[in-house]
Amino acid sequence: MSLIEKLGRLWNLRGLFFESLGYSLIIAFGAVVLGFIIGVLLAVVRIAPKNNPIIKFFDKIAILYITVIRGTPTLVQLLILYSSVLVVFKSMSTNLLVPIIAFGINSGAYMAEIIRSGINSVDPGQMEAGRSVGLSWVTTMRKIIIPQAIKIVVPTIFNEIIILVKETSVVSYIVLRVNGIQKWDLLGIAEKLGLAVPACYLIFLFAAALLYLAVVMLLTLIQHLIERRLKKNER
């Protein structure tokens, strides 16, 4: 077999890689959305004035959540959730939600800290000025603090999203199923094909790496576009 033929055969496997990239992206996207929602909720609880016992209680819960989730490895959390689901449901024909929830819960803790520190880094004088003209805490947050905090957190949020996209590669530790058929994420497919054709293992790994890189570069581009847009209404 000539080199061209060999390369041609490898090229024919591209569909498998793209499909797996798709699963990786679905998991990452779902986890980002879930993580962002959890992050916003936790950040709001952490930042709200502690003037009533219910908020104080939720604040304690939020601190506990953030401590535990940030203090344990993502892979361990994923395996714990995956195994618990196995125990409860025995088998699921589609289990994409398991990694989405695991990564979402994980990312939520990081997002919460990012959002909290973003809001905290807005000059406290802005809140005072808002309150001094009679606006409520909520209105000042909504109209003054959050718009300024967004500008501050965009780079860090994108950093977290990029990390999350790459972190989804630990999904290859669990068995993914879609409609009862086993599927693989991007790293998973490279490993599976590598087992079948050990001579090409490195090539498959490079292919996966290139695809991750492409996605991250695309995300970086989006980040720059958003940052430029936010800068526009400054001057």
Binding site: Q126, E128, A129, S132, V133, K143, I144, N233
Partner: peptide, 21 residues
């Protein structure tokens, strides 16, 4: 408190204009 603040204009040492507006 919020109602009374409407009637009390406050000017700060560091201006505290709303930077995003």
């Amino acid at each position: 408190v919020d109602l009374s603040r409407r009637d009390m204009g406050m000017v700060f040492q560091h201006f505290n204009l709303f930077n995003n507006l």
